[in-house]
Design a binder for these strands. Structure first.
Lengths: 134, 134
DNA sequence: GATATTAGGTTCCTCAAAGATACTATTGGA
DNA sequence: TCCAATAGTATCTTTGAGGAACCTAATATC
Protein backbone atom coordinates (compact mmCIF):
# COMPACT_ATOMS: atom_id res chain seq x y z
CA UNK A 1 0.00 0.00 0.00
CA UNK A 2 1.27 3.41 -0.89
CA UNK A 3 0.96 5.60 2.15
CA UNK A 4 -1.68 8.15 1.25
CA UNK A 5 -1.14 11.87 1.32
CA UNK A 6 -3.12 13.77 3.90
CA UNK A 7 -3.78 16.69 1.57
CA UNK A 8 -5.09 14.68 -1.33
CA UNK A 9 -7.18 11.70 -0.31
CA UNK A 10 -8.90 9.63 -2.98
CA UNK A 11 -12.12 11.12 -4.21
CA UNK A 12 -10.87 14.68 -4.04
CA UNK A 13 -10.72 16.71 -7.20
CA UNK A 14 -7.91 18.87 -8.51
CA UNK A 15 -9.37 21.75 -6.54
CA UNK A 16 -9.13 19.69 -3.35
CA UNK A 17 -12.89 19.40 -3.12
CA UNK A 18 -13.98 16.19 -1.44
CA UNK A 19 -17.52 15.04 -0.84
CA UNK A 20 -16.70 13.17 2.38
CA UNK A 21 -14.65 14.66 5.22
CA UNK A 22 -13.63 11.38 6.79
CA UNK A 23 -11.76 9.79 3.89
CA UNK A 24 -8.37 11.00 5.21
CA UNK A 25 -9.02 9.25 8.53
CA UNK A 26 -10.04 6.10 6.76
CA UNK A 27 -6.82 5.93 4.82
CA UNK A 28 -4.88 6.24 8.06
CA UNK A 29 -6.85 3.93 10.31
CA UNK A 30 -8.60 1.33 8.29
CA UNK A 31 -6.01 -0.41 6.22
CA UNK A 32 -6.00 -4.12 6.76
CA UNK A 33 -4.60 -5.17 10.16
CA UNK A 34 -4.26 -1.68 11.58
CA UNK A 35 -7.12 -1.81 14.06
CA UNK A 36 -6.24 -5.29 15.37
CA UNK A 37 -2.71 -4.01 16.00
CA UNK A 38 -3.93 -0.91 17.82
CA UNK A 39 -6.46 -2.97 19.75
CA UNK A 40 -3.85 -5.48 20.91
CA UNK A 41 -1.39 -2.81 21.97
CA UNK A 42 -4.11 -0.94 23.80
CA UNK A 43 -5.46 -3.92 25.73
CA UNK A 44 -2.34 -5.98 26.31
CA UNK A 45 0.27 -3.34 26.94
CA UNK A 46 3.60 -3.12 25.11
CA UNK A 47 4.15 -6.13 22.88
CA UNK A 48 7.04 -7.54 20.89
CA UNK A 49 6.87 -8.24 17.18
CA UNK A 50 6.15 -11.92 17.52
CA UNK A 51 3.69 -11.36 20.33
CA UNK A 52 1.66 -9.19 18.01
CA UNK A 53 2.04 -11.73 15.25
CA UNK A 54 0.59 -14.49 17.41
CA UNK A 55 -2.49 -12.40 18.15
CA UNK A 56 -3.18 -11.54 14.52
CA UNK A 57 -4.06 -14.86 12.94
CA UNK A 58 -2.97 -14.89 9.34
CA UNK A 59 -0.74 -11.84 9.17
CA UNK A 60 2.62 -12.34 7.47
CA UNK A 61 5.82 -10.80 8.80
CA UNK A 62 6.26 -8.70 5.71
CA UNK A 63 2.85 -7.09 6.03
CA UNK A 64 3.15 -6.73 9.79
CA UNK A 65 6.42 -4.83 9.38
CA UNK A 66 4.73 -2.61 6.83
CA UNK A 67 1.78 -1.80 9.05
CA UNK A 68 3.89 -1.22 12.17
CA UNK A 69 6.02 1.26 10.26
CA UNK A 70 2.98 3.11 8.97
CA UNK A 71 1.48 3.33 12.45
CA UNK A 72 4.78 4.48 13.88
CA UNK A 73 5.16 7.08 11.16
CA UNK A 74 1.66 8.40 11.85
CA UNK A 75 2.45 8.72 15.56
CA UNK A 76 -0.10 6.14 16.71
CA UNK A 77 2.45 3.69 18.12
CA UNK A 78 6.09 3.80 19.18
CA UNK A 79 8.91 1.36 18.64
CA UNK A 80 11.60 0.85 21.26
CA UNK A 81 14.65 -1.17 20.41
CA UNK A 82 16.83 -2.64 23.19
CA UNK A 83 20.51 -3.21 22.47
CA UNK A 84 20.50 -6.85 23.47
CA UNK A 85 21.32 -10.10 21.82
CA UNK A 86 19.13 -11.55 20.58
CA UNK A 87 17.51 -8.23 19.78
CA UNK A 88 14.34 -7.10 21.48
CA UNK A 89 11.86 -4.55 20.19
CA UNK A 90 8.75 -3.37 21.96
CA UNK A 91 5.77 -1.65 20.43
CA UNK A 92 3.43 0.54 22.47
CA UNK A 93 0.40 2.67 21.76
CA UNK A 94 0.84 6.44 22.08
CA UNK A 95 -1.39 9.13 23.51
CA UNK A 96 -2.53 9.89 19.98
CA UNK A 97 -3.35 6.24 19.48
CA UNK A 98 -5.32 6.15 22.71
CA UNK A 99 -7.32 9.17 21.58
CA UNK A 100 -9.05 6.87 19.11
CA UNK A 101 -10.85 4.99 21.85
CA UNK A 102 -14.12 6.95 21.65
CA UNK A 103 -14.30 6.50 17.89
CA UNK A 104 -13.66 2.78 18.12
CA UNK A 105 -16.17 2.55 20.94
CA UNK A 106 -18.92 4.05 18.81
CA UNK A 107 -18.10 1.71 15.93
CA UNK A 108 -18.24 -1.24 18.32
CA UNK A 109 -21.66 -0.18 19.58
CA UNK A 110 -22.93 0.20 16.05
CA UNK A 111 -21.69 -3.31 15.32
CA UNK A 112 -23.45 -4.74 18.38
CA UNK A 113 -26.72 -3.12 17.46
CA UNK A 114 -26.77 -3.43 13.69
CA UNK A 115 -24.64 -6.27 12.39
CA UNK A 116 -27.57 -8.66 12.54
CA UNK A 117 -29.64 -6.21 10.47
CA UNK A 118 -26.90 -6.23 7.87
CA UNK A 119 -26.96 -10.02 7.87
CA UNK A 120 -30.72 -10.03 7.30
CA UNK A 121 -30.42 -7.47 4.53
CA UNK A 122 -27.91 -9.71 2.81
CA UNK A 123 -30.19 -12.70 2.99
CA UNK A 124 -33.03 -10.71 1.52
CA UNK A 125 -30.87 -9.35 -1.26
CA UNK A 126 -29.43 -12.74 -2.11
CA UNK A 127 -32.91 -14.20 -2.39
CA UNK A 128 -34.19 -11.35 -4.52
CA UNK A 129 -32.67 -12.05 -7.92
CA UNK A 130 -30.64 -8.84 -7.93
CA UNK A 131 -27.13 -9.29 -9.31
CA UNK A 132 -24.36 -10.10 -6.86
CA UNK A 133 -21.71 -7.43 -6.36
CA UNK A 134 -18.96 -8.76 -8.65
CA UNK B 1 -13.28 -7.03 -3.76
CA UNK B 2 -14.76 -10.24 -2.48
CA UNK B 3 -17.59 -9.38 -0.15
CA UNK B 4 -16.41 -10.47 3.28
CA UNK B 5 -18.28 -12.92 5.45
CA UNK B 6 -19.69 -11.49 8.65
CA UNK B 7 -18.86 -14.58 10.67
CA UNK B 8 -15.23 -14.83 9.72
CA UNK B 9 -13.49 -11.47 9.35
CA UNK B 10 -9.79 -11.32 8.64
CA UNK B 11 -7.61 -11.74 11.69
CA UNK B 12 -9.88 -14.31 13.26
CA UNK B 13 -8.54 -17.77 13.95
CA UNK B 14 -10.14 -21.10 13.14
CA UNK B 15 -11.79 -20.92 16.55
CA UNK B 16 -13.37 -17.61 15.62
CA UNK B 17 -11.18 -15.75 18.10
CA UNK B 18 -10.43 -12.23 16.96
CA UNK B 19 -8.32 -9.69 18.76
CA UNK B 20 -10.34 -6.71 17.54
CA UNK B 21 -14.13 -6.49 17.68
CA UNK B 22 -14.55 -3.84 15.03
CA UNK B 23 -13.00 -5.63 12.06
CA UNK B 24 -16.38 -6.81 10.75
CA UNK B 25 -17.63 -3.23 10.63
CA UNK B 26 -14.53 -2.11 8.85
CA UNK B 27 -14.99 -4.63 6.08
CA UNK B 28 -18.51 -3.38 5.56
CA UNK B 29 -18.02 0.36 5.80
CA UNK B 30 -14.50 1.28 4.87
CA UNK B 31 -13.84 -0.13 1.45
CA UNK B 32 -12.72 2.46 -1.02
CA UNK B 33 -15.49 4.90 -2.07
CA UNK B 34 -18.11 3.61 0.37
CA UNK B 35 -18.12 6.53 2.78
CA UNK B 36 -18.13 9.17 0.03
CA UNK B 37 -21.16 7.44 -1.45
CA UNK B 38 -22.97 7.32 1.88
CA UNK B 39 -22.00 10.87 2.63
CA UNK B 40 -23.32 12.18 -0.69
CA UNK B 41 -26.61 10.32 -0.40
CA UNK B 42 -27.02 11.52 3.17
CA UNK B 43 -26.37 15.18 2.48
CA UNK B 44 -27.74 15.62 -1.02
CA UNK B 45 -30.81 13.44 -0.97
CA UNK B 46 -31.58 10.74 -3.51
CA UNK B 47 -29.12 10.80 -6.38
CA UNK B 48 -28.85 9.18 -9.78
CA UNK B 49 -25.91 7.08 -10.89
CA UNK B 50 -24.20 9.84 -12.82
CA UNK B 51 -24.90 12.40 -10.13
CA UNK B 52 -22.99 10.25 -7.67
CA UNK B 53 -20.27 9.74 -10.22
CA UNK B 54 -19.77 13.48 -10.65
CA UNK B 55 -19.35 13.93 -6.92
CA UNK B 56 -16.75 11.18 -6.54
CA UNK B 57 -13.79 12.46 -8.51
CA UNK B 58 -11.93 9.58 -10.04
CA UNK B 59 -14.35 6.73 -9.54
CA UNK B 60 -14.97 4.56 -12.58
CA UNK B 61 -18.43 3.27 -13.48
CA UNK B 62 -17.37 -0.31 -12.92
CA UNK B 63 -16.22 0.29 -9.37
CA UNK B 64 -19.18 2.54 -8.62
CA UNK B 65 -21.61 -0.18 -9.69
CA UNK B 66 -19.74 -2.63 -7.50
CA UNK B 67 -19.90 -0.42 -4.43
CA UNK B 68 -23.53 0.54 -4.93
CA UNK B 69 -24.47 -3.14 -5.12
CA UNK B 70 -22.55 -3.95 -1.97
CA UNK B 71 -24.15 -1.10 -0.08
CA UNK B 72 -27.57 -2.12 -1.36
CA UNK B 73 -26.96 -5.72 -0.35
CA UNK B 74 -25.92 -4.66 3.13
CA UNK B 75 -29.10 -2.62 3.50
CA UNK B 76 -27.37 0.75 3.75
CA UNK B 77 -28.84 2.20 0.56
CA UNK B 78 -31.77 1.44 -1.74
CA UNK B 79 -32.07 1.49 -5.49
CA UNK B 80 -35.23 2.57 -7.27
CA UNK B 81 -35.59 2.09 -10.99
CA UNK B 82 -38.11 4.07 -13.07
CA UNK B 83 -39.43 2.53 -16.27
CA UNK B 84 -38.54 5.43 -18.52
CA UNK B 85 -36.44 6.00 -21.59
CA UNK B 86 -33.70 6.95 -21.18
CA UNK B 87 -33.64 4.96 -17.93
CA UNK B 88 -33.60 6.61 -14.55
CA UNK B 89 -32.35 5.06 -11.33
CA UNK B 90 -32.28 6.71 -7.95
CA UNK B 91 -30.21 5.74 -4.96
CA UNK B 92 -31.15 6.72 -1.42
CA UNK B 93 -29.74 6.14 2.02
CA UNK B 94 -31.78 3.89 4.34
CA UNK B 95 -32.57 4.11 8.05
CA UNK B 96 -29.76 1.66 8.67
CA UNK B 97 -27.43 3.86 6.66
CA UNK B 98 -28.49 6.93 8.62
CA UNK B 99 -27.76 5.10 11.87
CA UNK B 100 -24.08 5.49 11.04
CA UNK B 101 -24.19 9.25 11.57
CA UNK B 102 -22.94 9.23 15.17
CA UNK B 103 -20.01 6.99 14.27
CA UNK B 104 -19.03 9.14 11.32
CA UNK B 105 -19.46 12.23 13.46
CA UNK B 106 -16.95 10.97 16.01
CA UNK B 107 -14.48 10.10 13.28
CA UNK B 108 -14.89 13.57 11.82
CA UNK B 109 -14.19 15.17 15.18
CA UNK B 110 -11.12 13.04 15.65
CA UNK B 111 -9.94 14.18 12.22
CA UNK B 112 -10.48 17.85 13.07
CA UNK B 113 -8.56 17.57 16.30
CA UNK B 114 -5.76 15.21 15.38
CA UNK B 115 -4.98 15.17 11.68
CA UNK B 116 -2.40 17.92 12.11
CA UNK B 117 -0.71 15.85 14.83
CA UNK B 118 -0.46 12.98 12.40
CA UNK B 119 1.06 15.30 9.83
CA UNK B 120 3.68 16.45 12.34
CA UNK B 121 4.45 12.88 13.35
CA UNK B 122 5.05 12.05 9.70
CA UNK B 123 7.44 14.93 9.27
CA UNK B 124 9.38 13.87 12.34
CA UNK B 125 9.53 10.26 11.21
CA UNK B 126 10.62 11.15 7.70
CA UNK B 127 13.44 13.26 9.08
CA UNK B 128 14.59 10.59 11.47
CA UNK B 129 16.33 8.11 9.23
CA UNK B 130 13.89 5.34 10.03
CA UNK B 131 12.96 3.25 6.99
CA UNK B 132 9.89 4.28 4.99
CA UNK B 133 6.96 1.88 5.14
CA UNK B 134 7.38 -0.08 1.88
C1' DG C 1 31.40 -27.04 15.16
C1' DA C 2 26.40 -27.12 14.52
C1' DT C 3 22.18 -25.31 15.80
C1' DA C 4 18.65 -22.34 17.96
C1' DT C 5 16.94 -17.75 19.10
C1' DT C 6 15.21 -12.99 17.73
C1' DA C 7 13.41 -9.16 14.75
C1' DG C 8 13.08 -8.40 11.15
C1' DG C 9 15.01 -7.70 5.63
C1' DT C 10 14.73 -9.31 0.98
C1' DT C 11 13.46 -11.60 -3.12
C1' DC C 12 10.26 -13.76 -6.04
C1' DC C 13 5.78 -15.26 -7.02
C1' DT C 14 0.58 -15.15 -7.33
C1' DC C 15 -3.89 -13.32 -7.24
C1' DA C 16 -7.45 -10.01 -6.45
C1' DA C 17 -8.83 -5.29 -6.64
C1' DA C 18 -8.69 -0.96 -8.93
C1' DG C 19 -8.54 1.64 -12.94
C1' DA C 20 -8.75 2.96 -18.23
C1' DT C 21 -11.20 2.66 -22.21
C1' DA C 22 -14.58 1.31 -25.25
C1' DC C 23 -19.04 -0.51 -25.92
C1' DT C 24 -24.38 -1.68 -25.33
C1' DA C 25 -29.79 -1.10 -25.34
C1' DT C 26 -33.48 1.90 -25.72
C1' DT C 27 -36.19 5.41 -28.14
C1' DG C 28 -37.66 10.17 -29.00
C1' DG C 29 -36.29 13.91 -31.81
C1' DA C 30 -33.69 16.56 -35.78
C1' DT D 1 -30.71 8.02 -40.73
C1' DC D 2 -28.12 9.80 -37.17
C1' DC D 3 -27.64 11.60 -32.68
C1' DA D 4 -28.21 12.21 -27.77
C1' DA D 5 -28.91 10.58 -23.02
C1' DT D 6 -28.69 6.99 -19.15
C1' DA D 7 -27.01 3.24 -16.54
C1' DG D 8 -24.42 0.44 -16.73
C1' DT D 9 -20.94 -4.00 -19.32
C1' DA D 10 -16.92 -5.94 -21.27
C1' DT D 11 -12.19 -6.22 -21.72
C1' DC D 12 -7.63 -5.17 -20.77
C1' DT D 13 -3.86 -3.33 -17.91
C1' DT D 14 -1.81 -1.86 -13.69
C1' DT D 15 -1.24 -1.89 -8.92
C1' DG D 16 -0.58 -3.71 -4.63
C1' DA D 17 -1.62 -6.92 -1.19
C1' DG D 18 -0.23 -11.06 0.40
C1' DG D 19 2.44 -15.82 0.65
C1' DA D 20 6.67 -18.67 0.92
C1' DA D 21 11.25 -19.03 1.49
C1' DC D 22 15.68 -17.66 2.65
C1' DC D 23 19.19 -14.24 4.76
C1' DT D 24 21.49 -11.45 8.74
C1' DA D 25 24.07 -10.94 13.38
C1' DA D 26 25.48 -12.13 18.35
C1' DT D 27 25.28 -15.12 21.66
C1' DA D 28 23.99 -19.61 24.14
C1' DT D 29 23.44 -24.27 24.16
C1' DC D 30 24.45 -29.00 22.64
Amino acid sequence: MTTPSLERPFGSGADGFQPCPITPVIEILFSRWTTPILWSLHHEGPLRFNEIRERLTGVTPKVLTQRLRQLERDGLITREQFPEVPPRVEYSITELGLSLSPAFGVLGSWADENLSLVAHARERYDGSGRPRPS
